[in-house]
Design a protein around this nucleic acid. Structure first.
Lengths: 333, 333
DNA sequence: ACGCTGCTTGTAACCGGTTACTGAATCCGC
DNA sequence: GCGGATTCAGTAACCGGTTACAAGCAGCGT
């Protein structure tokens, strides 16, 4: 038995004839070692846990693909759990991962950024750390110094700044902002970037143009309908996500407004559908796959003692200018 | 130690005072049981392994979501591995899952349907079976009777039949078919349905209208370009997947052809982008999430001794008629 | 007060590997 | 041909739980 173990591990001298016999038996019996026993004995494959709201959202799927690729490339398995935004389930999943002794738990996606959140993540971080695992926040706000956490973010606020600046630079002055929910971290950053750009152009944010709702397609449609019904005047729409932009586009069509001739439209995320729309959607590109790869890379480097990685990374964003933006019409509505 | 185990399992009488003490200690130490040790001892959470080409493809992501939901609902974990279409990696992954003693290994997606494939899957089925695991083929062709396999398919051929019949019924007679690779199982089924519909209308398949290439957007674009360049006459395009349809749409636009006024376009899969296109794409709806849920359900029912499930399920498909199809123009080009 | 019953807790074997240590066999030099 | 060094294979402890079984103890009847 010890010999078989050594042959399979290949880390100990075994006579050629013995090795051959063992391998033949292995093939005959179609033997594979029990991963749990290996894990228990301290050998065995590590797993990386990925926790996200919903794998069918393109942005999350891309992050997931990045994590999985990097994990696979380095011989790790990838455990995926979805929470549907349920905090209770998130707690359960993190504990489950602690039981599994996952090498890392990567939490993905924005959420309400509250003191309760920070406190909660702090507990997660410490309890994962206590079993040799590591918490990674991916596209989530950091939770303070001194905690065993790795954070991988993208320049959320900067992307929104540039997107709005792009509209302002084209001459737009009344931009309907379809933001996310108040307090939601991603939404907050995007709003901040938007307002900073307005300020840079000496504009006051007009409350009439600022809306807050969830990131769904439906909410984009609804809010554009409401703005049109209220005869709000605007020459551009900045949707806080591409999904919202999809709804907005439908709403604008309904109202007989052409994009970009009558109204310009900008999204955020650059999910694959953006370039399939008519007109192709100008949007803020977020390197989601890179985000996932980086998260996995940092945590695996750290595990393998390759220092250098660091515990905090900020990836850049940029605007992909396509066909949904143009200067405002001569006579703004 | 035994007492702690019993308190946490809750399957054995323990005095209230003892239980309280144990729970307090658990909370103080932030203790969680080691999942590997539990698994080794025969208790512990089961995991379901999902093996697919690429999680960012919307159809796969939906299947994945279905599997994950059903698995989570029933207290299982979901291990996701991608192969990027690499058979070698698939083999490695299946063996890895055998080591992990996964309750089931769900293989997703079409591929070359050869004798070698059947032989290979037969080996997978038996070797997984030998460790108490179960092979599930999801959207893949079955591999013969008498093997320990569960198969969940959708009516691939039927969907193609109805889609083509829809075009024929509208008056189209020259339909450019953008098929998949020859021998690829999904592609073969869709081609068969297409040809059966043609035959039902008394039409011979015209080799000039039948093309075969991969399921990428790029291949759709390329093939439409070639058809236009060759002045092939057609009034409709049937793309074997929505991704191919995306490329086809771009190609038609390039050629100055309006959809659906000049050329009708039908896709297959009904991925979310289909309804965002202009015009909204008529396509064959495939219940991918249901496919995933069913795969997980069948295999878990079997495991829990709930018979009834069966080992072979065929889900229905239907055409979602949207705006990309219309009768052919009066004077066909 | 003693023995019996029934409930609770403790003990130890087992799950299936890994690996330090022990022991046997081979090879070498003299 | 023999002692010592060197290989290689076997033994057993350990990883961290579960659970059958043994044992302790309280409560009860007599």
């Amino acid at each position: 038995m010890a010999t078989v173990s050594r042959v399979l591990a290949g880390n100990y001298p075994v006579t050629h004839s013995t090795r051959t016999k063992v391998l033949r038996a292995v093939r005959q019996l179609d033997y594979v070692a029990n991963a749990h026993a290996k894990a228990l004995a301290g050998s065995g494959v590590e797993t990386i846990a990925l926790v996200l709201d919903d794998i069918t959202w393109p942005a999350f799927a891309q992050i997931g693909a990045g994590v999985e690729q990097e994990a696979a490339r380095r011989g790790r398995l990838c455990l995926v759990c979805t929470t549907q935004g349920d905090q209770q389930r998130e707690l359960a999943v993190v504990n489950l991962m602690r039981e599994q002794h996952a090498a890392a738990v990567i939490l993905v996606g924005g959420l309400q950024y509250t003191a309760e959140y920070r406190e909660r993540m702090g507990r997660f971080a410490r309890s994962l750390d206590s079993v040799g695992s590591r918490l990674v926040l991916c596209g989530r706000p950091p939770i303070g110094e001194g905690l065993p956490v790795t954070v991988v973010e993208y320049d959320n606020e900067g992307g929104a700044y540039v997107a709005t600046a792009h509209l302002l630079g084209a001459g737009h002055r009344r931009i309907l902002f379809l933001g996310g929910e108040r307090g939601q971290s991603t939404a907050t950053g995007r709003l901040a970037g938007h307002e900073r750009a307005l300020a840079a152009y000496g504009l006051e944010p007009d409350p009439e143009l600022l809306t807050y709702a969830d990131f769904s397609r439906e909410s984009g449609l609804r809010r554009v309908r409401e703005a049109v019904r209220a005869s709000t005047s605007f020459t551009a729409v900045f949707a806080a996500t591409d999904m919202v932009a999809l709804g907005a586009l439908e709403g604008l069509r309904e109202a007989g407004l052409r994009v970009p001739e009558d109204v310009s439209l900008v999204g955020y995320d650059d999910i694959p559908v953006a370039r399939e729309l008519t007109p192709r959607l100008t949007t803020v590109h977020v390197p989601f796959d890179e985000l996932g790869r980086t998260a996995a890379r940092l945590v695996l480097d750290r595990r393998e003692g390759v220092g250098g990685g660091g515990d905090r990374v900020l990836l850049g964003t940029h605007v992909s200018i396509r066909d949904s933006t143009a200067p405002p019409p001569a006579a703004p509505r």
